[in-house]
Computed example of a mutant assay.
Amino acid sequence: MEVFADYLGSIDNQQHRDRTEEVLAWVTKKFPKLVPEMKWKQPMFTDHGTFIIAFSVAKHHLAVAPERVGIDHFSDEIIQAGYNHTKELVRIKWDSPVNFELLEKMIEFNIMDKADCSTFWRK
């Protein structure tokens, strides 16, 4: 979590900072083999040098980016959880609960799907 300290400290809204820290700490604890990193000014987690998931803070939501394949794979579940999404990210509104079960599924999917991936992004 130390790698995210400056990022978290830069979030002015305390509620947003607390929620972001909660999610990042959960990922760190739940998936200890993932490497926490800051790239492109956003917190993300990688596995054997390949991207798994990233997060970013916006005015109205926490953005979750599991790559397009992950969003396509879980689109129905994302909608059922009450979140909206684009091709590249899921928006969790600040006043909505985090569906950690869905987040876990997305991360596990990317870890398994990219087990043999030798590039940062899917090709």
Rank of each mutant, 00 (worst) to 15 (best):
R68T: 12
P43D: 02
D116P: 02
N110S: 08
N99C: 02
S96W: 09
W121H: 07
T20W: 09
V69K: 07
A58S: 04
W94L: 05
V90F: 07
M112G: 12
R122E: 03
A115C: 08
F45E: 14
F4K: 07
K30A: 14
K123H: 06
T50P: 05
Q14W: 04
L103N: 09
F51Y: 10
L89V: 02
I107P: 03
N84T: 14
V64P: 05
I111Q: 01
V35C: 07
R91V: 00
L103W: 06
H48V: 10
E101Y: 05
V64N: 04
V35A: 11
I79W: 08
P97E: 01
V98G: 08
A63Y: 02
E22C: 03
S118A: 10
D76I: 02
W40C: 12
I71C: 09
E22Y: 00
T20P: 12
N13E: 15
Q42A: 13
E104A: 09
Q42N: 15
P97T: 01
L8N: 05
I107N: 03
L34I: 08
P32E: 11
W40F: 12
H60P: 06
A81Q: 13
P36S: 04
I79M: 07
E77G: 01
L102I: 12
P43W: 05
Y7A: 03
A63Q: 03
M106H: 06
P97Q: 01
M38Y: 00
K105G: 02
D116I: 04
T28Q: 15
C117M: 14
E2T: 12
F4H: 10
S75F: 03
N13F: 08
A58T: 06
V69G: 07
E67R: 02
V57T: 09
E101L: 04
Q80F: 06
F4D: 11
L89K: 04
L24D: 07
K93S: 13
T20G: 10
T119G: 08
Q14D: 11
W40K: 14
Y7V: 04
H16Y: 13
E101K: 08
K33I: 13
D113Y: 03
L102A: 09
R91I: 01
M1F: 10
T119C: 08
V57H: 02
K105P: 07
T20I: 10
S96T: 10
K105C: 05
E21M: 06
A63T: 08
D76T: 12
Q15H: 05
V35E: 14
I53N: 04
I78Y: 00
I107G: 06
T46A: 13
Y83A: 03
K59G: 08
Q14R: 06
N84Y: 11
F120M: 11
Q14H: 09
F51H: 06
A63S: 10
Q15T: 07
S56E: 05
E37Y: 02
R91W: 04
I11K: 09
H60K: 14
L34K: 09
L24Y: 02
F55I: 04
S56D: 10
K114A: 05
K114R: 12
D72I: 08
V23G: 01
D116H: 06
W121M: 07
Y7F: 09
K105Q: 14
S96Y: 08
D72M: 11
R19A: 08
M38F: 00
K41S: 13
